[in-house]
Design a protein around this nucleic acid. Structure first.
Lengths: 339, 339
DNA sequence: TTGAAAGCGATACCAC
DNA sequence: GTGGTATCGCTTTCAA
């Protein structure tokens, strides 16, 4: 199944010109007569000529290839980002490698080695890098979209939402709806620590700004092992069983929110009236729930667009690329806060 | 940001040997003394040498790269397949390109051209090819996973579920549960015609095998424009309004099934008792529903595994690669059929 | 306007 | 066991 295709040399022979001329015509560079151009183009087409990118890359030290590294493409949010980033890069002539690191430092390290070897022109981390800094020095443009970890000092671009503000705004929204005892529900794996911490900080800050004292009993946190849906529901049951009352829940994630809603319904609470709930991500979970869950949309389109833009800018040796891009989020009100 | 890295020539110089020897050591080919090996290896490591794949590819006419083409990675089912296929190929040293064709023939065509130019070693279509056969001749191993279109005559491998059997088994399941008037609900875009047709055929065949006459009024079909969930619900309402009775529904897709369940609940029907419903895909939709929807699991893991295997086999010039692999499905019983 | 030729980095054949 | 060198396909400089 080896492919020994038509080369620029073959075209040159058939057209009775040199490879230099063929190259010029094909790349619309240099100068050549209209006659030779037509001839070359016709022959190239007849022969089904396709440029050999390996040769081109070798010569130009650029592969027109970008690597997309993500912890898990099968995750709804990440895969949407992957889709959009890939599309945008493709419009500019770049092909994308897809690399599932599975949040595994070793795997990621091996990937990066391979990618450097394969001469990728840039790296786009979607959803965070596992370990930092990577032990292998990478002298490439790097963009992080929705990075969920500590940000390091390297010359890289970060595109993300203002996580702190999201936590703040979610809390504010509930307070605006009249909630006075706002709980927080979070189920998270250790990997994604920074995001959660920032959101919690936003929550705390908002309470503080409203002079509401923090009730530790209303901070429902649990580890993420199996299903955050199930785990979140249990957190709520435990809280209610312990006799702690609340009239609002800031859930860090729609799955968590759905778990919360389910547990509340189970206990006969009128979700949206007695207790208002707001989730995060505007994922399918918030939409299939009854009542539909209010949530925070992270604006995937903008995240992807700004990320791709940043990468293309860096690729184009643009000097003034922002190092940190914040994409605005948006609160989507549904039944769990509107009642 | 250009990378002018360490080359094999640099290593040769520093080690005081020839490039041939360095190449041999690095690839564990040919023969060399333990002493030179250690020396070369040490220097290569010190210099942070990374092989230039473009050069290697040019020389070997193989890029160790596979393209994954899918209509939409942000689709749950496809992205899971992409994830798994990528992982398996990566284990065998292949890197994967991700290509979102968006079910657009022109885009796909451009992709394939690019990919051939980039010298990919193989093509894996996930979820079907848009147009067939592609106008550009591809002399490459091609694997289709869950192909949703007509199968053509080329030397390619198809890995998929037995769609006809799925339709049959879903129907059989409802009949086993005592249903006597089994409806069919389908909302589909024209692109994915073959799959649906085969399933419908399975449904019809099963009815026939049980001597049940087909009632055209119970075949609820609608075009897919916006949300299949909403559209399916409307089909059910219309059917009920027209006074047609049924006690079972074979829904071609979990989203469709969810729409059906919602419409039935709305009309006060006891889903799982009065009317049993079975969906397809074992997606999130079937799991978040109340009652939980019985469904058919397509076995993503096996689809991906067999697909990757087939590709690797073709890559390895394996002569006896099956042209058509059928992956068994599995019925998952939940509340909508168990009552 | 056109062409000869060097070179990108790695491999592999064939001498030594 | 080791090294010289042609070669993969393309771009690019410099001359003609």
């Amino acid at each position: 199944m080896a492919k020994r295709g038509v080369s620029i040399y073959d075209i040159a022979q058939l057209a009775g010109v040199s490879t230099a001329t063929v190259s010029n015509v094909l790349n619309e560079k240099g100068s050549y007569s209209a006659k030779t151009r037509d001839l070359v183009l016709r022959i190239a087409h007849e022969q089904g000529y396709v440029a050999n990118f390996a040769a081109k890359s070798l010569r130009e030290a650029s592969t027109k290839t970008i690597a997309l590294l993500t912890p898990d493409v099968s995750n709804d949010f990440f895969s949407t980002l992957v889709l959009r980033v890939e599309s945008l890069l493709h419009e500019s002539g770049y092909t994308s490698y897809i690399c599932n690191t599975g949040s595994d430092a070793e795997r990621e390290e091996r990937y990066v080695r391979d990618l450097v070897s394969k001469q990728v022109d840039g790296l786009v981390y979607i959803g965070g890098r596992t370990h930092e800094p990577p032990s292998i020095a990478v002298d490439l443009p790097v963009v992080h979209i929705d990075h969920r970890g500590t940000i390091d000092m390297r010359r890289e671009t970060y595109v993300e939402n203002d996580i702190h503000a999201m936590g703040y705004d979610m809390t504010q929204n509930l307070i605006d709806h009249g909630c006075t005892r706002v709980a927080l529900a979070s189920v998270s794996a250790t990997v994604y620590h920074r995001g959660d911490q920032d959101q919690v900080a936003g929550y705390l800050r908002c309470l503080e700004d409203h002079g509401m004292p923090l009730d530790e009993n209303l901070v429902l946190k649990g580890p993420h092992q199996q299903s955050s849906l199930v785990e979140a529901a249990q957190l709520v049951r435990d809280c209610l069983d312990a006799g702690h009352a609340f009239d609002g829940v800031v859930a860090l994630g729609d799955r968590v929110a759905l778990g919360v809603v389910n547990a509340l319904k189970e206990r006969g609470v009128a979700v949206g009236r007695d207790v208002r709930v707001i989730g995060m991500d505007d994922s399918i979970y918030s939409r299939v729930s009854t009542p539909a869950i209010s949530t925070v949309r992270r604006n995937t389109a903008a995240l992807a667009e700004r990320g791709a833009q940043a990468m293309l800018a860096m690729l184009g040796d643009d000097k003034d690329v922002e190092a940190h891009v914040l994409v605005p989020h948006e609160i989507v009100e549904r039944a769990t806060t509107l009642g």
